[in-house]
């Protein structure tokens, strides 16, 4: 762990000012669950760590548009167990609870969840090259141990994935990220928040270095009754997703009015394809109609030595998630959301 200065911000403005002053070598800390981990790995080497954990951004409240506003510093646990989140955005609650462990969810914050770094083995191992960690050094994952890597939207420079579960649900819900910076406040649509690796895998989102996330806005959702988060992983809990699917349906009887599908574990950002979702509009909620969506979502997929399987697995998971969503939120069983009550 590198030698860093520590300061505790008393206000959002103070936090933003300190971050700007550190000129790229500063990091905010709140839950610390990812940053302290990476500090010990020497992956993150900030000069200045700015503690924002005491800023008044912990509330979960009604938003003016009838949605819900999640404070950036509300913990993952407080968010997942919030009665309004559970009632109106069950896929979000379940996605959060499918991630990490109870301890980590008690610590981790909503803002921090968006800014999680990848779990790619090479990113974590400073003895080896990594374009994300050290631009231009190379990507050994492409020919190496890439089970945890992506199959969609990858580049020749990086095949890492975004590891969050929460963000997959947020992407499906079309949340908006509220940020504050020296140039004032702005709102970033979720689809525009995370970026694909391209030639700059070190850049993971559109947040400016001197901006801070203050809240996440959830728009009103018609999907609460048919929301699922299906997570497929190598053990039953406390593991990152190989593939995960947030599937939301708005049904009129058996007919789909609209659908949302977001994928995790497969790309550098939560993966959505509105064209694929549109295939379901006006269709009945049947497996036959779900299959083309799965095909479309993975049409451009490219597998690597140890993760080719994610393409087939991903398609099957999409179909499963949509089937479960059609059955209704209430029937879904288990933290991984793979099965329903009989």
């Amino acid at each position: 762990m590198i030698n860093f200065s520590y300061s505790r911000a008393g206000s959002v403005a103070e936090a933003v000012g300190a971050k700007g002053k550190a000129d790229g070598a500063g990091r905010f800390i709140a839950g610390g669950t990812n940053l302290v981990d990476l500090l010990k790995e020497n992956v993150e080497r900030p000069c200045a760590v700015i503690d924002i954990s005491r800023l008044p951004l912990k509330t979960i409240e009604e938003a003016p548009d009838g949605g819900l506003r999640l404070g950036a510093l509300a913990t993952n646990a407080d968010t997942a167990y919030h009665p309004e989140v559970q009632r109106r955005y069950p896929a979000l609650s379940r996605a959060i609870l499918a991630g990490a462990s109870a301890q980590l969810r008690n610590m981790a914050t909503n803002g921090g969840n968006l800014l999680q770094r990848t779990r790619c083995y090479y990113f974590y191992d400073v003895a080896l090259p990594c374009n994300k960690r050290q631009p231009g050094s190379g990507c050994p994952a492409i020919k190496g141990q890439n089970r945890v890597c992506g199959v969609l939207g990858t580049s020749d420079d990086c095949i890492a994935t975004h590891p969050s579960d929460m963000c997959i649900a947020l992407a499906a819900l079309e949340a908006a990220v509220r940020v504050s910076g020296p140039r004032g406040e702005r709102t970033i649509p979720f689809a525009e928040f995370h970026t694909l690796p391209g030639h700059t895998p070190d850049i993971e989102n559109t947040l400016a270095p001197d901006e801070i996330i203050t809240a996440i806005d959830l728009p009103p959702s018609p999907y609460a009754g048919h929301s699922v988060y299906t997570k497929v992983r190598d053990r039953a809990s406390y593991a990152f997703a190989l593939v995960s699917v947030a599937a939301l349906l708005d049904l009129d009887g058996d007919t789909i009015k609209s659908a949302r599908v977001a994928l995790g574990g497969v790309a550098h950002k939560p993966w959505r394809l509105p064209e694929a979702e549109a295939l379901l509009t006006g269709k009945t909620a049947t497996k036959e109609n779900f299959l083309p969506v799965a095909q479309a979502l993975f049409a451009g997929a490219h597998g690597y030595e140890h993760n080719f399987f994610k393409i087939e697995l991903g398609k099957r998971a999409v179909v499963r998630a949509l089937q479960l969503a059609a059955r209704g939120t209430a029937a879904i069983k288990g933290v991984n959301g793979q099965t329903a009550d009989a």
Partner: peptide
Amino acid sequence: EYHIPVAA
């Protein structure tokens, strides 16, 4: 990343 069983 090296998995051993968890309680679940």
